[in-house]
Design a protein around this nucleic acid. Structure first.
Lengths: 165, 165
DNA sequence: TCAAGATTGATGCAGATGCATCGATTGGTT
DNA sequence: AACCAATCGATGCATCTGCATCAATCTTGA
């Protein structure tokens, strides 16, 4: 429990930090240069567009995206400001509301999706064989589980979310 | 050049983003809970303390840490405010200056180093065998090279830096 | 020697983030 | 029914970031 980290573990840590920061940067820059908004917007539009009726409770969106509550609230602000989503009343729970993706939102999501795919292929896919990518997944997954000395049952987490930063 | 990314590549991308964000968060939270400043401070103190005379030009620090120039400038501000480093005149180039780590700075660096090591062991080392950590390094390294459609010779990069976010 | 351009470091500003807290509403307990 | 704790979403505030630009100094080349 108190062992000091092996050089291998330290090296892995360092690379994990550096490589993701670099790759993320590259992908995000590509999208930005193409005139697209940040990746977080895409992730949100993605969750909305795949949800039934294209609408979600902010609280759901938050869980899918693994970002803090206030962050969700403000992300929604921006999407709404840009006409990509709309806030709708929630009749069954008057504390809450629904966020619904608009046609414009779906359109942007689609266009971003293509650019995003190209960027991922360029910065990830083209550098690894599929087999190596799969190996990488396996190793990363081993790091991704119990994290906080999780006091009790932390609920299982969506397996498709990409935390926005 | 225009292939769409394989599912393996996409999966690797998603995990790379999610896992590092999670692991970073865990480590940073551990340090924060122990009353320590952000990791970037540690990285800076690290570079300073290993430099000859414990001093560096901001421009060097910037290259080591892979962060933008203004970010370096402000990080130094904070270190100086806290008495962890000092700005010293640079006689050979009056545009520039030296940043020198103080005794307090070295002390903090040392204490943080221990906590940091424990956190890395907890969140990385304990979850991978050394062999797997090494494999992970190898795979990550493959992602870490040419990134921008690098127009010409981008200078080689320090191999020990951890970009601060 | 001198002007043109590059380098170094700082900073004003707008936007983003983290933290704490708020008001509103709900559900559970007695 | 009446209360109280928990949940939902928003927001004020301080801080941090990214971008553009600044002044000062250095280097180059005619």
């Amino acid at each position: 429990m108190k062992r000091k980290p092996s050089t291998e573990a330290s090296a892995a840590w360092i690379r994990l930090m550096r490589v993701q920061s670099r790759v993320l940067d590259c992908v995000e820059q590509d999208l930005k240069r193409a005139g697209f908004p940040p990746l977080a917007w895409f992730d949100a539009l993605m969750e909305l567009s795949r949800a039934p009726n294209g609408e979600l409770r902010p609280v759901e969106l938050e869980k899918q995206m693994l970002i803090p509550q206030y962050s969700t609230s403000r992300l929604i602000d921006r999407l709404v400001d840009e006409g990509l989503a709309a806030r709708r009343e929630c009749k069954m729970d008057k504390r809450g509301l629904f966020v619904e993706i608009t046609a414009t939102g779906r359109e942007l999501h689609k266009k971003m999706g293509s650019a995003y795919a190209v960027a991922i292929e360029k910065h990830v896919g083209s550098k690894l064989t599929d087999a190596d990518a799969a190996k990488l997944c396996g190793l990363l997954d081993r790091l991704g589980c119990a994290c906080h000395d999780t006091p009790a049952g932390s609920p299982p987490v969506a397996k498709d979310a990409i935390p926005a930063r």
